[in-house]
Design a protein around this nucleic acid. Structure first.
Length: 275
DNA sequence: TCCCAGGGTGTGG
DNA sequence: CCACACCATGGG
């Protein structure tokens, strides 16, 4: 059991803010799934209790050694009303250290899609290809190993509801399986080289690449711009830019290494009606 | 019936 | 370089 102060670790904010799709409300808290593991998070009197089988894994996953108090202070001092509002309401968001592979596949699925449907698709992919596991009497399916997922053909992915993204996912997992695409190798490249390598993958454009960078490679200066962020930029920041890549660069120029976290504050606040 | 969702690709100019 | 049609699917 891990016990951690809830000020900068809010299970609801962290899990529902759109960075991850594998979690379910359970009892008074949440079941969180990552790779082949499961944890139960529950907040109680100022602390989050994390019940799990692998404390080392989940400490890293929730980035519990990071100094979020310092980061939040820095963000709150930026002087922008909207950012301060979003951060104040959702300072319990943490950028999860997700698997590169799981994040990449998940955000390829996410394109031009909505979050409830993305969750359903990934759930069905896990049920169809993932290993059946059990935690505390709860059965669940692991995120599939590459070898398993590479056996799936386009038709099967389509039957799971991936739509036109089926061929993208099939292509990604096949190149991962063959070694043509090596995410561990890519993680050692420079920031520019890494992003360019991701952009070469069919089905990965600027936004999905930024999500993979932020959530899978923990590149915290990545600022993904989707429809919500674009809307927010125009409605709440009186922005004039229309090119999403330039909108992203604008926010990165303002927040640097904290840009990714600020993006999550804003995205979640906008979707929650807080702005 | 059309619009939207954590967009990207391919084509024509 | 740009704009634009098209890509499946389900919910509102």
């Amino acid at each position: 059991m891990i016990k951690y102060p809830s000020t900068y670790l809010d299970p609801t904010d962290t899990l529902t803010c759109g960075q991850v799709f594998r979690f379910i409300p359970y009892n008074k808290g949440y079941l969180s799934f990552a790779q082949d593991k499961c944890a139960y998070l529950c907040e109680q009197s100022g602390y989050v209790n994390i019940d799990c089988d692998d404390e080392k894994f989940w400490r890293e996953y929730f980035d519990l050694d990071a100094d979020y108090e310092g980061i939040v202070k820095s963000v709150l001092s930026c002087g922008n009303n909207k950012v301060v509002t979003a951060c104040s309401k959702h300072k319990g968001i943490r950028i999860l250290r997700q698997s590169r592979y799981e994040a990449l596949v998940s955000f390829v699925i996410s394109q031009n899609n909505n979050i409830p449907r993305i969750k359903g698709i990934i759930e069905r992919v896990c049920a169809a290809f993932g290993e059946k596991k059990s935690f505390g009497g709860v059965d669940y399916y692991a995120f599939p190993k590459v070898e398993r997922l590479a056996e799936g053909d386009v038709k099967l992915f389509e039957s799971l509801g991936l739509g036109y993204r089926a061929e993208y996912v099939a292509g990604v997992v096949k190149s991962l399986q063959s070694g043509e695409l090596d995410l561990d190798y890519l993680s050692g490249l420079s920031a520019d080289e890494l992003k360019n390598a991701l952009l070469k993958i069919k089905g990965v454009g600027n936004k999905v690449a930024d999500c993979a960078l932020l959530f899978g490679f923990h590149k915290t200066d990545a600022f993904p711009v989707d429809t919500w962020i674009e809307k927010l930029y125009h409605e709440d920041f009186d922005g004039k830019l229309t090119d999403r890549k330039k909108i992203s660069e604008y926010f990165v120029s303002l927040f640097g290494d904290n840009a990714g976290l600020v993006q999550q504050y804003l995205f979640h606040a906008k979707r929650s009606g807080d702005l």
